[in-house]
Amino acid sequence: VPQTPIRAAMNSIQQLRVELTSASDQPSHNLQVYFKNCTVDPSEEITKRVEELGQVFSQKFAQAVGQRSEGLGRKRFNLGAQLYYKVMESMLKSEEKRLSVQNFSKLLNNATFHTSLLACAMEVVMATYVGNSLKNGAFGRGSGASDSVETDLCFPWILGVFQLHAFDFYKVIESFIKAEPTLKHDMMKHLEHCEHLIMENLAWRADSPLFDLLKQSCEEGAGEQAEPPAT
């Protein structure tokens, strides 16, 4: 059977579904143990955040694609939530091994971390649906309304939906790729493309937290001896 752009996208969606077959859109037992080990249990906040972001995502999806598509948006969000919990568990296992600690209270109570991780999972789901052939222009952006709408839902659309700074999204990308070894070559390249877009453009917009951090870094370093220019 010849490989068409639609068939390629459908195969990618099928693969994603298979990989998430055993995953749940609720925290696994292992994750719940990590939550209970925290000084401040983050369970309620995490569940509440996922519910709220799920509603926001479904509404924005419906606004972009059509009001009758809210159910479709909800299905995609549930896939993203499954991936979010799966990757979170994998990340915590790696951190436990690396740091020899089991209490991740500070990280797991950091709202920006969770929103960034969920946004990255959603980006993987959305990019899978759009399909790599479509993204690479095989259909052309002007060939049909639905094609261009789907393409418009790709990065950085999710940042606006979750009201997330590109700089914070950037921070999860590498750890996400390390924690999810089943990610396909094309998806890794897509996330790398997002990374470049942030580095070259999005992180330097006027409202970016990067400027405050640079200022803070300059102030902290003011009393220290300046490093040689080459460094």
Binding site: E95, L107, H185
Partner: peptide, 21 residues
């Protein structure tokens, strides 16, 4: 994973990036 350029050092992880211990 050979397809991606990893920039983090081995001693760095997600905890450090979100300013955690």
């Amino acid at each position: 994973s050979q397809d991606y350029h990893f920039g983090l050092e081995e001693h760095e992880g997600i905890s450090e990036l979100f300013d955690c211990d």
